[in-house]
Computed example of a mutant assay.
Amino acid sequence: MTPGRLRALLLPLALLAGMPAGQAQTSDSRCAKPVYLTLDTGHMEVAPLMADVLKRQNVQVTFFAAQERTKEGDGSLGEHWAPWWRARAAEGHAFASHTWDHTYWRGDLGTPDKPLFKVRPSAGPRAGQDFTMTAAEYCAEIAKAADRLQALTGQKPMALFRAPGGKTSPRLIASAQACGYTHVGWSPAGFLGDELSTAQASNEALLRKALRDIRAGDILLAHLGIWSRTDPWAPAVLEPLIVGLKERGFCFRTLREHPDYATKTVR
């Protein structure tokens, strides 16, 4: 074998050896076992560490963002975190709204043709208060977070939203669809448990459950910091979970590549 032929054979192996872990696998569009990791905002303390894991593992995710209270800075979509969001955009992640004030749906009011919603934000000037929103006001709450994401990232967010806590009603979903937003929840096995107290479930137990139960096509959910968990889920579980799923033949995709949401790329 000539030296030139030998170099030609060895070059691909050398390139693979220099890639971040899993890069060859995650860049393979033919992967038959996709999963869709989504990350909602939170107190953001672990956000830099989580971003490091995603970059090291060459995994792209979909962020659902609200202007939540944080341990550092002026809210998760504030100026303090603007460089962090710009960096995630440069890495190719996808973005969508989680409502501006992390506004929970609490009940339907009004009538089907004039819907009203009882809501309770967990952030913003009315945090912890119950009050009523019209359908138009709820749409504006979704759009405000989407607009802020676009200003921070320079990218149009997906025409998707996730209601805080996943709490919705058919009327709420229909009202959001009427103003251009599709709701995205998560798969039953995709609930990764970072919202549970440490007493309920250890990180080790949550990792074992996820690796056992997750199936191809699942939408996975975790957060950029949970106030109530004393033993943080991230980054302790995040990297072992990604590595373990890759070893089982899974690949990671954003919702831009999900068959139900691929056409919802921009508003």
Rank of each mutant, 00 (worst) to 15 (best):
A140Y: 02
P83H: 14
P12V: 12
A65I: 00
Y104C: 05
L152W: 11
Y261R: 01
L207N: 06
Y261Q: 00
A14F: 14
K144M: 08
A201G: 14
S27Y: 03
K209L: 01
C179G: 14
A66D: 14
L196H: 09
R148T: 03
P188V: 06
A189L: 03
Q150Y: 01
L54H: 13
R106T: 10
E68M: 15
A136W: 06
K209S: 06
F95R: 09
E247R: 13
M158G: 15
K246Y: 13
T70H: 04
R215N: 12
D28A: 13
L255F: 05
L211I: 04
E72C: 00
Q155R: 12
W100G: 03
K264E: 11
K209A: 04
L220Y: 09
K156T: 12
A8P: 05
A146K: 06
M1V: 06
A24G: 12
P115T: 03
T103M: 03
A143Q: 15
I214A: 04
G73K: 02
Q155K: 10
E91R: 12
A66H: 11
L9S: 00
P48R: 11
L54F: 15
K167T: 04
V53N: 10
F161C: 04
T263N: 09
P240E: 00
H102P: 07
P48Y: 13
G78K: 06
K209E: 02
R248S: 06
A145Y: 06
T153R: 00
A8W: 12
G225Y: 04
R69P: 07
A205M: 10
S169D: 12
G110F: 07
D194N: 12
S187W: 14
R120V: 07
V237N: 06
A262N: 05
D40Y: 11
G225P: 03
G110H: 06
G190Y: 12
L37K: 10
Q67Y: 10
E68A: 15
P232A: 04
L15A: 14
A14S: 14
A236I: 11
F191P: 02
L6P: 03
V61S: 02
S175E: 05
G166E: 13
T111S: 13
T263K: 09
D260L: 12
A216D: 10
I219P: 00
A151T: 05
P121C: 08
P115N: 01
H80T: 14
L11F: 08
W105A: 05
P164F: 02
E68D: 15
D260I: 00
A234C: 10
S228W: 00
T132I: 15
T182R: 05
F191H: 04
D40P: 04
A163E: 09
Q155Y: 04
V237G: 05
F250W: 05
D147M: 12
A178R: 15
E257F: 09
G22T: 13
A82F: 07
A236Y: 09
P3G: 14
G193W: 13
Q177H: 14
S228V: 07
V119P: 08
W186V: 10
D260N: 09
T70F: 08
T153G: 01
E239F: 08
R212H: 14
A136F: 03
A51R: 07
P240H: 02
E257Y: 11
T38Q: 02
K264A: 03
